[in-house]
Amino acid sequence: MKAVYERNPLLMGSNKFCPGCGHPLLNKIIADVLAENNWAGDAITALCIGCALNMTPYVDWDLVQCPHGRAAAVATGIKHVQKSKLVFTYQGDGDAAGIGLTETFHAASRGEPFTQIMVNNQIYGMTGGQSSCTTLIGQKTTTSGPSGRDPAHTGYPTKLAEVIAMVDAAGYVARVSIHTPKHIRQAKKAIEKAFRLQMEENKYTFVEVLAMCPTNFHVEPWDAPAYTEEKVLPVFPLGEFKTPEGR
């Protein structure tokens, strides 16, 4: 029998993420991109604070755990010392778009040649489901009040990909999702493209990944793809917002 799909050796057995969580799925997608392009031995991840921390024991390539929000600044330091390596951040929305927006924005503005991966699940997962800047209008969280996010009180979801796409020095900006096999294929292509533009053309690249958090969406894991389709995609449109070829 020929293997059609085998476990990626860059992944270490089981993980501590919740059932149906987008993180281990995205870990796997990144591991596949690294393995298929022979990049694993060059990879250094600047890892955020949050649920993503569970990635530390799960993946088998170099990681630097950063203070909350500062992954883009840490990645800047890494890349300047290891110029030929594949450096990418792995951050949640709270990390990259909330507390770390300044570091994210200025790394993009300087055109630092690394990749930022922002996992947008519209929630603070690790602390138990508090509002994020990306929380949907009407989405109920433990800090939104009983009627959910109210724009009169907390404004509207932060759309970071669209913001970063406006930065002159950004080489590639995309938003992808991973809630169906088709979207997973597109996400993988976007991440591979972002990594390639970093490695071959020294570009700053940014990929926002919409990820499922069934625990804090308050849906069954198997219903999370439909939730993403119906509620998340209308707010966070998918696509390439900036490419080297032009918008």
Binding site: F17, P19, R185
Partner: peptide, 21 residues
Amino acid sequence: TGCALCAAMCPDSAIQVYKEA
């Protein structure tokens, strides 16, 4: 049929797929 959509979708890499060559 070995389409491997299940394996692609599995967040935890619990599924491996093999096919007659």
